[in-house]
Nucleic acid binder design. Sequence first.
DNA 1: GTCCAGGGTAAGC
DNA 2: GCTTACCATGGA
Length: 270
Amino acid sequence: MELTIPNFDIALTANSGQCFRFQKIDEIHYSIIARQTHLMIQTLDNDRFLLDCDEKSYQEIWHDYFDMDRDYLSIMKAAPPDDAFLQEALRHTKGLRILQQEPWECLISFIISQRKNIPAIKGCVEALSRRFGEPIGDDLFAFPTPEAIAASSIEELNTCSLGYRSNYILKTARMVASRQADLDDFGRLSDPELKEALLRFPGVGIKVADCVMLFAYARTKAFPRDVWINRVIDKHYDGQSPAEYLGPHAGILQQCMFCYIRSSQYKNTY
DNA sequence: GTCCAGGGTAAGC
DNA sequence: GCTTACCATGGA
């Protein structure tokens, strides 16, 4: 089906380090696997795209995944106008969207992310999917269920280059598979309650919890601080986190700054 | 070969 | 409460 997606830079979003199974095929085709489903997107022009799914699948999965109900233009307009670095970041990251990922996959992906770069994280997520996930097409595998990982072992998980994270992932999977923790119920919690609940998983600290809140539960105030954002805070905010003054969409603005400081366009002049 | 990566944990203070 | 050593692995 054909679809207009306003404010969507597909390359920028796919490489923004928020999701790890959004892959470039060629100049106009991108492949996504999410919620046990594969999607191919073809770029038609600036904001028009061709999705190889039907209306039902779009409404059930991809409408929310692409965060279609959010008005990004008004969020950018509401950003503090006198913040020179932020405004520069926003100019260079037009079209960046925050995807609404599945909590379980997002949780495991960001437990993996600690002390790894983005290509390495992608490799681990892909290896996990191939090893434990259900086949969903031609050489395509869904992200494994909590039950599939809970039924595995440290030794099997170690074949996915997870290092010391294998133990965290196995324990977390057992907590979810046993219903000791219900990730769907987490959606009803307030921001502080959700953060506290996420911090109970082994391998989840403040930063990973913030990533899951922002990228899976649409808590746009969550402001993940990784090594790159800490550099931004040191260089441009005098060591003080701007999270509070950036307001209810601080997390979205954070993602723009993250992408900008990592880009070749960043000149370190502000 | 060296440095770094979307950090977390536990021990020590 | 705040430091610090340590944790496995692969990419650059």
